[in-house]
Amino acid sequence: MRKLLIVEDENEINKLIHDFFELKEYEIKQAYSGTEALLLFDQFQFDAIILDLMLPGKDGEEVLRLLKAKRPIPVIIVSAKEREIATITTLKLGADDYVAKPFNLEELYLRTEKAIAMYGKMSAAIPSAQVLSFGEIELSEAERTVKITGKTINLTSKEFDILSLLIKAPNQVFTKEKILELVWQDEFEVDTNTVSVHVSNLRKKLGKSAGIKTIWGIGFKLEPPL
């Protein structure tokens, strides 16, 4: 089942899109602000995002920029902004398509399906070298999945990014401040305690395969198995 994030502050439109895509057997999360969208994006793995530009708090263009900086994902813009200007701006920021309000739900669905299919072809073309191994752990950057002895481990977006960072440089010590800088990129007001909590959760999920060692007073490193 495909997973969709709808980011739209107007309740009626959000529900309209939700109900239509639910009939198409999508699993859906709904956000009503840019900040809420970014929080959900860090908690779940989505196949596509439908994003309004005129949002409270962080506007759609800023949200789009932050989403695209995190990982490749199809983003379809839905907005009442002047089409020509908004289309050019959002495409420059990495949007995959633009649908002007008022829109046809079937057209929105078909454009979303097309964008997902395109990303699927791109992922299939990425060489297998994108799969990183550490002991029993296999991490696929293309699919953003983690497996231990073939079993998929469900990680949040931030947990995945931390593990990816550590697994690329075994034995290198990363300070909490550096992890915060590389993974969170100053998008939220968070401190180093947040890093510690995520690493703790990561250890629990990975179990004995984790290999994450705390360097007291400094940070963390990944120790290769003996």
Rank of each mutant, 00 (worst) to 15 (best):
Arg2Trp: 10
Asp9Lys: 03
Asn11Lys: 11
Asn11Arg: 13
Ile13Cys: 00
Ile13Arg: 05
Asn14Arg: 12
Lys15Ser: 11
Phe20Leu: 03
Phe20Pro: 00
Phe20Ala: 02
Phe21Gln: 01
Glu22Val: 10
Leu23Ser: 13
Tyr26Gln: 12
Lys29Gln: 12
Lys29Ser: 12
Lys29Pro: 02
Lys29Leu: 10
Gly34Val: 13
Thr35Lys: 12
Thr35Gln: 14
Ala37Cys: 14
Ala37Pro: 13
Leu39Ser: 13
Phe41Cys: 09
Asp42Leu: 09
Gln45Phe: 01
Gln45Ala: 09
Phe46Tyr: 02
Asp47Gly: 05
Ala48Glu: 04
Ile49Cys: 05
Gly57Tyr: 02
Asp59Trp: 04
Leu64Asn: 02
Arg65Ala: 08
Ala69Glu: 09
Ala69Gly: 01
Lys70Met: 13
Arg71Cys: 06
Arg71Thr: 07
Ile73Trp: 06
Ile73His: 03
Ile76Lys: 02
Ile77Val: 11
Ile77Pro: 00
Ile77Asn: 04
Ala80Pro: 03
Ala80Gln: 09
Lys81Val: 04
Glu82Val: 06
Glu84Lys: 15
Glu84Cys: 08
Ile85Ala: 09
Ala86Arg: 06
Thr90Tyr: 12
Leu91Ser: 06
Leu93Glu: 01
Asp96His: 11
Asp97Cys: 03
Tyr98His: 10
Ala100Gly: 01
Lys101Phe: 08
Phe103Tyr: 15
Leu105Asp: 04
Glu106Phe: 14
Glu107Ala: 10
Thr112Gly: 12
Lys114Ile: 11
Ala115His: 07
Ile116Leu: 14
Ala117Asn: 12
Tyr119Pro: 06
Gly120Val: 00
Ile126Tyr: 13
Ile126Gln: 14
Ser128Tyr: 06
Gln130Met: 04
Gln130Val: 04
Leu132Gln: 14
Leu132Asp: 11
Phe134Ser: 01
Gly135Asn: 03
Glu138Gly: 05
Leu139Gly: 00
Glu141Gln: 13
Glu141Arg: 11
Glu143Gln: 08
Glu143Asn: 04
Thr145Gly: 08
Val146Phe: 03
Lys147Asn: 08
Ile148Arg: 02
Lys151Asp: 01
Ile153Met: 04
Leu155Met: 12
Leu155Ser: 08
Leu155Tyr: 09
Thr156Cys: 06
Lys158Gly: 07
Asp161Pro: 05
Leu163Gln: 11
Ser164His: 15
Leu165Glu: 12
Ile167Asn: 15
Lys168Gln: 10
Lys168Asp: 04
Asn171Cys: 03
Asn171Trp: 03
Asn171Gln: 03
Gln172Arg: 15
Val173Phe: 05
Lys176Trp: 05
Lys176Val: 01
Glu177Leu: 07
Glu177His: 05
Val183Phe: 13
Trp184Cys: 07
Glu187Asn: 09
Glu189Trp: 07
Glu189Lys: 15
Asp191Thr: 07
Thr192Gln: 07
Thr192Cys: 03
Asn193Pro: 01
Val195Glu: 08
Ser196Glu: 11
Leu202Ile: 07
Arg203Gly: 00
Lys204Ala: 02
Leu206Tyr: 08
Gly207Thr: 03
Gly207Met: 07
Lys208Leu: 05
Ser209Met: 03
Ala210Cys: 10
Gly211Thr: 00
Ile212Pro: 04
Ile212Met: 05
Lys213Ala: 06
Ile215Val: 12
Ile215Arg: 04
Trp216Thr: 11
Gly217Met: 06
Gly217Cys: 04
Phe220Lys: 00
Lys221Tyr: 12
Leu222Cys: 03
Leu222Glu: 02
Glu223Trp: 09
Pro224Glu: 13
Pro224Asn: 10
Pro225Asp: 07
